[in-house]
Design a protein around this nucleic acid. Structure first.
Lengths: 152, 152
DNA sequence: ACTGAAACTTTCATTTC
DNA sequence: GAAATGAAAGTTTCAGT
């Protein structure tokens, strides 16, 4: 992983469908070494995959919710139980383990407020072992990018 | 935007580099109407683009921070000033406008704790007009997907 | 008019040197 | 790193519903 690899990564984040020729031009490499680097990054799991970026609102899920969750107990069994449940919930796009007062932060997508109420009742509370849930709604996006910063 | 479009969208989120033929097979369409739908989704801005998913840790930015910010004043000028500054900060990958007690939530990527301290001092406090900053570190990822849920 | 099928053109990835 | 070969993907056109 050198500066060239990071250049390639950022180019592929800006345009995941760029052709190898164009990519090679952009990073000042000829096509074959460029492709070699891309394949290596893919095989190493550094490039996990490629994905379409979608307007969630137009798709029909206009409401983003950040949910902060605290568990009642933190033994292996309860933690495993919670995490395996979370992974199976389609509405949860992200779940981070947090430091500090909160155990987890989720990013959840729902069609409306009612959808969120249903989600909490049917998907979250049914897991059990949850001490507290703190909900914050996002009602606008100032910035959203995938492109990683250059390392200084 | 019908059920077929949503099928196409989810397939392109799972694999942004799928060929039109494979995509057409997956959604039970022939290649030309399938491509037409994809192009329409792109032109309508519903598919915003395509991007590589990258392992942030391997890239050299292992620390994810969620930063919750409250402004001192909420007049048009101060809000504009804050938001335009945020957009220019490369380390800020996401910034949401929030309901409730907090004004904004940022997702920030830094190399280490020191990098975060520098970030707050050099990038955030210098904006001015900030009433409070609340920082939460993520130290693990339970789930992270781009694929939107089926609409029920 | 919209969808599905087919042929043709062009471009890209792979492999060899 | 360059060139040649082979494969596919996109575009366009035509036919059918």
């Amino acid at each position: 992983m050198d500066s060239k690899d990071r250049q390639i990564i950022r180019a592929l984040q800006r345009n995941g469908r760029i052709t190898n020729q164009e990519l090679a031009d952009e990073v000042s490499l000829s096509p074959s070494p460029c492709l070699r680097r891309v394949r290596n990054l893919e095989k190493a799991g550094i490039i996990r995959g490629y994905s379409a970026e979608v307007d969630e609102k137009a798709y029909g899920l206009p409401v983003t919710v950040f949910v902060r969750i605290k568990l009642e107990r933190h033994n292996e069994e309860d933690v495993q139980r919670f995490e395996s449940h979370i992974q199976r919930i389609d509405e949860v796009l992200e779940c981070h383990v947090m430091t500090g007062a909160i155990d987890y932060q989720l990013r959840v997508l729902v069609p409306d407020l009612e959808g969120y109420e249903d989600f909490v009742r049917a998907r979250i509370h049914t897991i059990g072992g949850i001490a507290s849930i703190d909900t914050s709604f996002a009602y606008g996006v100032v910035k959203k990018t995938n492109v990683l910063p250059k390392l200084s």
